[in-house]
């Protein structure tokens, strides 16, 4: 069975291209454009990996990661964070929450795909 990836990003174009690339690799992709729907999809879709954008209106990426950790919705080490700006404190807080990896926008899509494959290969 193909691995399931959930993309939580309000930037629809970026998410569409990431989705396009990952589908070609054989992954099953689900996309949510806000944190609230993203949290619901984590419960329903039960993804193997989450790609989470930091900057979103409403519940932002950091809050999503905090809720995931607090409510034990999934292992936070299966979250890769995308962020539009490098904020050292924010990044540190995210790694304290146990996220797997962090990528700053603008990012290289090939780099993201490699990190996703590496993260998924470590899964049981």
């Amino acid at each position: 069975m193909s691995k399931k990836i959930l993309l939580i990003d309000d930037d629809t174009n970026v998410a569409s291209y990431v989705k396009f690339r990952l589908q070609k690799k054989g992954y099953t992709i689900n996309h949510m454009d806000n944190g609230l729907d993203g949290l619901q999809a984590i419960k329903d879709f039960k993804p193997d990996l989450v790609i989470l954008d930091m900057m979103m209106p409403g519940i932002d990426g950091r809050e999503v990661a905090e809720i995931v950790k607090e409510e034990n919705l999934m292992d936070t080490s299966r979250i890769i964070v995308l962020s539009g700006k490098e904020v050292t404190e924010e990044v540190k807080a995210l790694f304290d929450l146990g996220i797997h990896d962090y990528l700053q926008k603008p990012f290289n899509i090939d780099n993201l795909v490699i990190r996703i494959e590496r993260a998924l290969s470590n899964l049981p």
Binding site: D11, N13, V14, Y17, K105, P106, F107, N108, I109, D110, N111
Partner: peptide, 15 residues
């Protein structure tokens, strides 16, 4: 519109 949005978000070959 979409090309400029993607330029701002992607790096490397795609950019």
């Amino acid at each position: 519109r979409n090309i400029t949005e993607l330029i701002d978000n992607f790096d490397g070959d795609q950019k």
